[in-house]
């Protein structure tokens, strides 16, 4: 009980670090995720996050060899994640452009093959003498408890970068997501815009790996933005709400994971965001089920009234 109070009241320094870190992560994921969702690239984010796994493993192995069992270094692991994640996305695009295979199938292939490769490498790492592979599981299922202040800072910086880029290119990205060919027609390079957007998705995914894990990080990109759509018909407002829901889910999930023993934070964060999604689905003031029922009933009554007259 005392521990519960300690966690929730944020008296603990470590808890404060974790809460700030995941809050920044939730914000950034909500913001970037909204554009990813509207660009209809939601599953591309999933392919990307799964494709980071072999990169993490290879980086881990290389670092073990060079540093001679000197433990793991987050920047090295995350660099590996970026490299193989981007490689995965490029593979999807290559398969889609060069063969007649459709994008969803291409993503299915890349996602499973990269994840399979990662799993195989992880098996090898576990057999490697003297190497401590325990940290790798945190990348799969998410482990916020081990978040250091450096990790939190890193996420904070990425969140600020995302915010800056989205503010600077808000109108361009809005046009890209709404009407790609018109964007080209008025002279914007949609290839460049797509690279910027996927670059942001890559950044927030990679810094989110530790907290949410690579299987579930996609949820933090999609669920908050999908929930936000129930509350508003305006893109700007949707981005803000998505950030808010993302931060709430991430913080809520991290706290639950800290209090309830043996729950990976990835799972608790996803379940918390699903709670937000359910609330939005039912109570959302623009597209929620209740408001739709009410408008339907109003229309029915109007028709009945007119029929009587």
């Amino acid at each position: 009980m005392q521990e519960l109070l300690r966690t929730i009241s944020l008296t603990d320094y470590n808890t404060r670090v974790v809460v700030l870190g995941v809050a920044a992560l939730g914000l950034a994921c909500g913001w970037v995720g909204t554009f990813m969702l509207l660009r209809k690239r939601a599953l591309m984010g999933d392919a990307l996050s799964h494709a980071t796994f072999p990169g993490i493993c290879v980086a881990f192995m290389l670092f073990q060899l060079i540093a001679d069992g000197g433990g793991k270094s987050l920047p090295v692991l995350l660099s590996g994640a970026v490299v193989s994640g981007v490689l995965g996305v490029l593979c999807v695009m290559w398969i889609r452009n060069q063969t007649r295979i459709k994008e969803d199938a291409a993503m299915g292939i890349v996602l499973s093959v990269f994840f399979g490769l990662g799993t195989a490498l992880r098996g090898i790492i576990q057999k490697m003498p003297g190497s401590n592979s325990a940290g790798l599981d945190g990348f799969i299922y998410g482990k916020t408890a081990s978040m250091t202040s450096f990790d939190a800072w890193l996420i904070g910086v990425i969140a600020m970068i995302s915010c800056g880029v989205l503010l600077l290119m808000y109108k361009e990205l809005k046009l890209l997501c709404f009407d790609e060919s018109f964007a080209k027609g008025v002279g914007f390079s949609t290839t460049r815009l797509d690279i910027v957007l996927m670059g942001l998705v890559t950044l927030v995914t990679v810094v989110g790996l530790q907290a949410v894990g690579l299987i579930l990080v996609i949820a933090l990109l999609i669920i908050p933005s999908a929930s936000a759509r129930f509350w508003t018909d305006r893109l700007g407002v949707m981005v803000l709400i998505a950030g808010l829901i993302g931060a709430t889910s991430a913080v809520g999930g991290a706290l639950i994971s800290a209090v309830v023993p043996n729950t990976p934070s990835g799972a608790t964060i996803v379940l918390t965001s699903f709670g937000c999604f359910l609330l939005s689905l039912i109570f959302g003031i623009r597209r929620g089920l209740m408001i739709r029922q009410r408008t339907l009933r109003k229309a029915q009554q109007e028709i009945l009234l007119r029929a009587k007259l």
């Binding site: 209809k40 809005k174 709404f178 009407d179 893109l235």
Partner: peptide, 27 residues
């Protein structure tokens, strides 16, 4: 060719016609 469910209003869409003239990065 576009998704009309997109969270923008009529005025937003018409304003997009001016994005090219406004140019990169300018609000």
């Amino acid at each position: 060719s576009v998704d009309w469910d997109f969270p923008v209003n009529a005025l937003d869409v018409v304003t997009m016609g001016l994005y090219g003239k406004i140019g990169w990065f300018r609000p």
